[in-house]
């Protein structure tokens, strides 16, 4: 039952996708908001490297531009904005785990396997693309949902959304590397706008409650 040996290209690409997934796991359990943001920055770095790698291998010049924007925006600017926000808020640690770390990780593992099995069953097979990474990307998306669900502080939830976008980026690199540049730029612009909005709302929330926990947001019901 020896598994087929993947090509060097897809081996490396798949591995980077798995690193993105692993950093998602790490965000899930990281206790400090600051370390979550740094993990996000690291994750974005991996996505950027993956973009460069695929650009070099497939000779898609547009991807270099995407990688450059991704480097500036996701690796540097967005983490810097959120870190600055955190510094202003002067909150180090938000007790926000709704369930234990072990249960979170176990559920995430199950969810990831589910994602991979489902995508594996779709037969997205292609000789030139590391299609296994698509399953991993879906797993990243689902685990980012778990991050938003299981952690009840604004930073985790915002980082959950940003890393969801990283998961989608991996997917787009894997199966849609030729996406027109204008569209990619629009995506990134959107992400930046979203970050600003998240930032504004975090600031408003903190100004109002002196806390970054979302447990206080339970007024509206019915």
């Amino acid at each position: 039952m020896a598994a087929l040996v993947p090509s060097t290209f897809s081996g490396i690409a798949d591995f980077m996708a798995i690193v993105v997934l692993l950093s998602e796991f790490a965000m899930l359990r990281a206790p400090l908001s600051r370390s979550q943001i740094k993990l996000y920055s690291f994750q974005s770095m991996v996505v950027t490297v993956l973009a460069i790698f695929i650009a070099a291998d497939r000779h898609i010049d547009g991807l270099y531009a995407v990688a450059a924007i991704s480097l500036i925006l996701k690796v540097v600017v967005i983490p810097a904005i959120v870190l600055r926000l955190l510094r202003d808020a002067k909150v180090e640690l938000v007790a926000s785990n709704r369930i234990g770390v072990a249960s979170m990780v176990l559920i995430s593992i199950l969810v990831s396997i589910f994602a991979m099995v489902v995508i594996d069953g779709l037969y997205v097979h292609s000789k030139s693309l590391p299609t296994a990474a698509l399953g991993v990307a879906v797993a990243v998306v689902l685990v980012s949902f778990l991050l938003v669900i299981f952690r009840s502080d604004v930073v985790s939830q915002a980082v959950g959304f940003f890393s969801l976008e990283n998961g989608v980026s991996v997917a787009s690199l894997v199966v849609a590397a030729g996406l027109p540049l204008i569209v990619e730029v629009a995506f990134f612009f959107d992400l930046l706008v979203a970050v600003v909005v998240f930032g504004v709302l975090m600031r408003v929330h903190h100004g109002r409650t002196q806390s970054l926990s979302t447990d206080l947001l339970d007024q509206l019901k019915g």
Binding site: A3, P6, S10, I18, V117, D120, A132, V136
Partner: peptide
């Protein structure tokens, strides 16, 4: 192990 079967080998 998961990667062996689902993550591209």
């Amino acid at each position: 192990v998961v990667a062996l079967f689902l993550g591209g080998g």
